[in-house]
Design a binder for these strands. Structure first.
Lengths: 235, 235
DNA sequence: AGATACACGTGATGC
DNA sequence: TGCATCACGTGTATC
């Protein structure tokens, strides 16, 4: 490790001297392309620029070495590889921190008063409308109603109902869809919404303690009611 | 931002053509130092070398950009500054991890030994919150705020930003999440929400015309504002 | 022997 | 105006 460093430094120090001499020779013998001003001012400026650039390169290189120093498990001494390893390391640290945060929050939540967390309390208490849904209901529901393009309810196995619903995506459609389904008191196992292009696809897995047609009608009614409270059920 | 990038690309594309021509002229008129073999093989090899070097530079540059992408709070776009900030950020992560790790072990040990003092410990020694939990600070202010458990913003390829957010599922959380993201005017390519058990996972693919940290801060601010409109996020 | 990686000098560009 | 940064083409050493 250190050996390599010393080796590299020695190598490049020698190389710098070497090429510097070569450069000077090149400048002396090949300065013809500087046809406009062969005086010393140009040379001085160029020399300044050269040295400045040399400083910059050196600084960047040693900064990179410093980066390499704080990153463990460096695979290759490559410049690009060093940066890549640094990126991977940072992401790894991110993951660690995320997991640690999760652990902390879990620890903290465990000391919360009640260990009884399930029971679907959220669905018992009727969701009282907050200021947001109220404004949605009144102002925007008629401007952009939920346009259902596909709707199916089917059984999967014995105890599971799969609900699939596709509608066109407009302003606040996602909010409304979520709102509808949260208001239905369904026994949701898992729910999934995908927005892509101008479509919204919602997939629900429900516990099958309700009749299939009941679920379908329930959802249809809720959507129709949201679209136009005066006119129940179209289709 | 896009303007700058486009500008730079155009600029450097032109420069590449320009200097390439210059290089060819140089080779044609000044190939005398190639006294041994004035054939085309040398030219081909040189051309290969040029293009290879070009590739290497490009790769290194974009690797550096990738590094910049995973490091928040970049002061200057400087190459050296990017690396310096990355170093500082890694060290900062090291410190955070060390402190958090210490706190975890402290919590666990005290929890084992003095289970009665849990309450006291939890609210006294509070770790310096990282960006992950900034939105959780006001989690107890309202009845069912959005409790963020995991939150990441990362790049995928060059033009895509991936946003991943996990929060605990409570009453109307789904509605609120959708509400927040619909109010942000993000360039959404595709969005996905999964509800499972007591968790909500939202994944977004965005068009990368906004800075990464801006997106993150935007979302954080919106969530914090929704959680507690009275106290809209310092920092 | 061919690919790879490096530092070099150089001109252009923006502040 | 200088000063800093950049990408370029080039020669050389290493693998």
């Amino acid at each position: 490790m250190d050996d390599i460093d010393v080796l590299c430094n020695d190598y490049w120090e020698n190389m710098i001297l070497q090429t510097e001499q070569l450069g000077r020779n090149f400048d002396e013998s090949f300065s013809f392309y500087d046809s406009s001003s062969p005086d010393g001012a140009q040379s001085s400026a160029a020399s300044k620029n050269i040295e400045s650039e040399r400083k910059r390169r050196k600084k960047l290189t040693e900064t990179l070495h410093a980066l390499r120093a704080v990153v463990p498990n460096i695979s290759k001494m490559d410049k690009a590889s060093i940066i890549k390893d640094a990126i991977g390391y940072i992401q790894e640290l991110h993951n660690q921190e995320r997991m640690i945060q999760a652990e902390i929050s879990e620890l903290e939540s465990k000391r919360r008063i009640f260990p009884d967390f399930d029971q679907e309390i959220s669905y018992n208490s009727k969701p009282k409308r907050s200021r947001f849904e109220q404004t949605c209901d009144s102002s925007e529901s008629r401007s952009s109603p939920i346009e259902v393009l596909e709707f199916s309810v089917s059984h999967m196995g014995e105890k599971t109902i799969v609900v699939s619903l596709t509608c066109s995506k407009r302003t606040d459609t996602m909010v409304k869809i979520c709102e509808v389904f949260e208001s239905l008191n369904l026994k949701i196992i898992t729910a999934n919404i995908i927005a892509f292009s101008d479509r919204l696809l919602k997939t629900l897995f429900l516990e099958a303690n309700e009749e299939e047609k009941d679920v379908k009608i329930k959802i249809q009614t809720a959507i129709a009611a949201l679209n136009d409270p005066d006119c129940p059920m179209s289709k």
